[in-house]
């Protein structure tokens, strides 16, 4: 874990998860363009400066939100009820269909809201390790350690179940399962995979639980923890900053 104060990775995971929530709510419930735009930019800038994304993530971060906003703008141009926006300018006319500028604005606002919420979520998403989050939840949210360790176990199960799912898919294909194409057939095929996948998963979980108990898991109300996820002054600063940005919309009224 990098310990630089300029790296989001050095901040407490629980703070990173919880502190953006007020901002996410304000952004999600806003109806104008300005508020979500500001939040989106704040989130993006924080991620670019302190998130230290790798090249591929960086490309997605830079290209993703504008694409998302563009997509939503256009699609809302199509979905919006014309009766609500036919007092705005017609941007495009295609036979019976008219693209109103009001519809585009609604779409733009929606796109900005989705992008803002996503970017605020990614502040924790891109810079937090699952195990640290669980450790921090145990230490700072008083989550029982037994549930925390179920979380660790679940994380370890994932690659195994992915492999299992792959094999089950092959195995069913070999057996001649072929429900055809289309969403319904796909859904049916997947629910066929679910039973062996889950049955195998639960059996595996059962064996793991026996091994854990045999090694003393749950012997005492607490256990020795060698690793601590720190909660420091910088985390308070981060939390204050993310709560403070919630007042940005009110500033616009002042300006």
């Amino acid at each position: 874990m990098s310990d630089s104060i300029l790296s989001l990775r050095s901040y407490n995971p629980v703070v990173k998860v919880l502190a953006p929530v007020p901002a996410m709510i304000v952004a999600g419930l806003s109806r104008d363009l300005w508020t979500p735009a500001v939040f989106a930019v704040i989130g993006l800038v924080m991620l670019l400066i302190a998130g230290r994304p790798r090249a591929r993530t960086l490309a997605w971060l830079l290209a993703g939100p504008p694409l998302l906003v563009a997509l939503l703008t256009v699609s809302f141009g199509v979905w919006t009820d014309p009766a609500l926006v036919d007092d705005t300018t017609a941007v495009l006319e295609l036979g019976p269909f008219t693209l109103w500028s009001g519809a585009l604005v609604t779409g733009l606002a929606t796109g900005l809201r989705v992008a803002a919420v996503m970017l605020l979520a990614l502040i924790a998403g891109l810079t937090t390790d699952g195990t640290d989050l669980v450790r921090s939840m145990i230490a700072h949210l008083r989550m029982p350690y037994r549930i925390g360790y179920a979380g660790f176990a679940a994380m370890r199960f994932v690659p195994r179940f992915r492999r299992d799912l792959e094999i089950i898919r092959l195995a069913h294909r070999v057996r001649g399962v072929d429900g055809g194409r289309g969403p319904v057939a796909t859904l049916r095929r997947y629910s066929g995979y679910a039973v062996p996948l889950l049955a195998g998963a639960m059996r595996h979980g059962d064996r793991v639980s026996l091994a854990m108990e045999a090694r003393g898991f749950g012997a005492h109300p607490t256990r020795t923890e060698r690793r601590h996820v720190p909660l420091r002054a910088r985390d308070a600063v981060l939390a204050l900053w993310l709560v403070a940005v919630c007042f940005v919309p009110h500033l616009t009224g002042v300006l």
């Binding site: 195990t131 360790y149 660790f152 176990a153 370890r156 195994r160 595996h204 064996r207 793991v208 026996l210 091994a211 854990m212 108990e213 045999a214 090694r215 003393g216 898991f217 749950g218 012997a219």
Partner: peptide, 23 residues
């Protein structure tokens, strides 16, 4: 309890994967 006996009896099971908890 079973965990209470962990200081007296240790076990090794058949499936090595089903005994791994941490990273």
């Amino acid at each position: 309890t079973v965990p209470g006996l962990a200081a007296d009896v240790a076990m090794v099971f058949q499936d090595p994967d089903a005994q791994i908890v941490t990273a």
